[in-house]
Design a protein around this nucleic acid. Structure first.
Lengths: 208, 208
DNA sequence: ACCTGAACACCGTTCAAGT
DNA sequence: ACCTGAACACCGTTCAAGT
């Protein structure tokens, strides 16, 4: 608040940093380009030197989010070598923790604030890498012989749908809870993962 | 556009009707209370006679959306009596179709535009009824002996997470496709449903 | 190169006033 | 009861101007 420096060394980064607490406090709808500029100590037009518009700033934040998700998968893989099932659970829980603990960023990433047709190359690359990181874990499981023999892309899609859906339901308020602790999220994760792993059908049947 | 009637018979309904095409055309972010009022042919302050604020109008639209989802489940149940598996698939596909074909409404319902703490009684009731309708189908399957013997709430939660997640990924642009036809959505639905029904694990194991 | 200040066309919301 | 018009405090974005 005492910043008076006329030249910001790295205004771009400063703006991204300033945006996070605003996003967490006021949500996507409450984030204002003018507010971010003010928090960074510059005029409300300064951001246009670094971002084409408000959307570009939001995209940059979303890219960081996807990198975080990818890192969650990579870390899960590294922390549980030779145990694809633990990798699977750890990656899923990391996804869930991220969504809940950075819910404003998750909403920004997934909630139509960034229309698909306006998404830039960086964003598509980042989300693609996150998907690939999860698929690597699925492939570990297939190689180890514990996952069923279907295309990795299909299994990854199904898994991601489950995890993503659960996360969206939690942060969207479709599942009510006063306070979401990691413990409660773990219970939820175990339930859904248990169903997905074992299957809904009592006995395997023909494809519907 | 030729409406000049000073008194609207039922402005509330007229506003809700006027909002839908705007929502579909411009998305949640593009919907404006002033624009809705203008489309309904009244001044920009008239809506405040029927809705406390913009959020209340959005909530009313979301309630209709949840009623639609509930109806999708009820219809699936009615159209496939004594065949819970078909009920299951039909309900899931109805969910997916709705999300894609009314994606602006789906975004409105699920994307944080309506903060959980501000949600009114009507909205919570409507979403609860939709969940209950899906659980009824799950219970049909349990009664028929084709679904595994776990609490219906847990199976419903897991199923909904999968379906909801897939829908969100499609409309959120996480899965790219030029044009989403019902045929393409069916392919996607079969893949994910197949994984969920059969389970990811090659052989059932101990809970993770 | 980087930032500022005024300006424009928009919002949501309030309120006194009209019929 | 229901609607209007002016007004207020905000936006995102543009642009000439400053250092």
């Amino acid at each position: 608040l005492k910043k008076k420096s006329y030249h910001h060394k790295n205004l771009r980064e400063a703006l991204l940093e300033a945006a996070i607490p605003i996003l967490d406090a006021d949500g996507v709808g409450g984030l204002t380009l003018r507010g971010v500029a003010g928090a960074a100590g510059v005029s409300h037009t300064a951001p246009y030197r670094h971002f084409a518009n408000k959307n570009a700033l939001l995209e940059a934040i979303a890219v960081e989010g996807y990198r975080h998700l990818e890192k969650g998968c990579r870390d899960a893989e590294r922390r549980h070598p030779d145990d694809p099932l633990r990798q699977f659970m750890a990656a899923g829980m990391a996804y869930l923790y991220f969504a809940v603990e950075r819910r404003a960023i998750a909403h920004l990433m997934f909630s139509g604030a960034l229309p698909p047709e306006t998404r830039g190359e960086a964003l598509r690359t980042a989300s693609g890498s996150a998907f690939a990181a999860l698929r690597d874990i699925i492939e570990n499981g297939k190689r180890a012989g514990i996952f069923i023999d279907r295309p990795a892309d299909e299994l990854t899609l199904s898994t991601l749908a489950c995890v993503h859906g659960l996360a969206m339901m939690v942060i969207g308020g479709l599942i009510q809870e006063r306070q979401w602790t990691r413990r409660k999220l773990q219970e939820l994760g175990k339930i859904v993962a248990g169903t997905l792993l074992d299957g809904l059908l009592r006995e395997p049947g023909p494809p519907p």
